[in-house]
Amino acid sequence: MKPNIGIINSMVRITAGLSMLTYLTIRGARKECDSSHPLLIMLSALKVAEGIVRFCPLTAVYEEMSTEKDGIEQSWQQNIPQDQ
């Protein structure tokens, strides 16, 4: 598993993840009846983890799908009828 995001991107992910995690923790501690959704807490922790290891699974899937496997570039041909 090699890094697929840059340094700046990882710092932004760490900062955003810790900010969201702090906000959700404070929000959950203040109002007991209005607890934070566990999914949001998991997503913010995931952003922190992605920034630390510099690997994003969604970016890896996108890069895998966007590269060509056989090395042959195929053109998209449009068959437009021409009226003469």
Rank of each mutant, 00 (worst) to 15 (best):
residue 14 I to C: 13
residue 64 E to P: 01
residue 38 P to Q: 07
residue 16 A to Q: 03
residue 72 I to A: 08
residue 82 Q to D: 07
residue 72 I to N: 04
residue 72 I to M: 13
residue 34 D to I: 10
residue 49 A to L: 15
residue 39 L to K: 01
residue 23 Y to K: 12
residue 6 G to H: 02
residue 64 E to V: 08
residue 2 K to V: 11
residue 15 T to V: 11
residue 17 G to W: 06
residue 68 E to M: 06
residue 63 E to P: 07
residue 72 I to R: 10
residue 14 I to W: 03
residue 46 L to T: 02
residue 49 A to K: 14
residue 81 P to F: 07
residue 40 L to T: 07
residue 74 Q to M: 10
residue 53 V to W: 00
residue 41 I to L: 14
residue 11 M to C: 11
residue 69 K to L: 06
residue 17 G to A: 13
residue 52 I to K: 07
residue 67 T to M: 14
residue 12 V to G: 02
residue 20 M to A: 10
residue 2 K to E: 12
residue 67 T to V: 14
residue 54 R to G: 04
residue 83 D to M: 11
residue 59 T to P: 00
residue 51 G to F: 00
residue 35 S to G: 11
residue 25 T to D: 00
residue 1 M to N: 05
residue 55 F to Y: 15
residue 55 F to D: 13
residue 40 L to I: 06
residue 62 Y to R: 05
residue 79 N to I: 08
residue 31 K to L: 14
residue 42 M to G: 05
residue 12 V to A: 15
residue 54 R to C: 06
residue 29 A to C: 11
residue 63 E to S: 01
residue 70 D to G: 10
residue 54 R to P: 02
residue 12 V to K: 10
residue 53 V to C: 02
residue 29 A to W: 13
residue 56 C to R: 00
residue 84 Q to S: 14
residue 6 G to W: 13
residue 18 L to W: 08
residue 42 M to H: 12
residue 42 M to T: 09
residue 18 L to P: 01
residue 61 V to H: 05
residue 29 A to N: 13
residue 35 S to Q: 04
residue 52 I to Y: 11
residue 60 A to Y: 02
residue 10 S to F: 13
residue 42 M to N: 05
residue 17 G to E: 07
residue 11 M to Q: 01
residue 68 E to K: 02
residue 28 G to D: 04
residue 19 S to Y: 09
residue 66 S to K: 12
residue 13 R to T: 03
residue 64 E to T: 11
residue 47 K to R: 09
residue 79 N to V: 14
residue 22 T to F: 13
residue 57 P to K: 05
residue 32 E to W: 09
residue 23 Y to G: 12
residue 8 I to A: 13
residue 18 L to I: 08
residue 53 V to R: 00
residue 53 V to D: 09
residue 34 D to T: 11
residue 44 S to T: 07
residue 40 L to D: 10
residue 52 I to N: 03
residue 61 V to G: 01
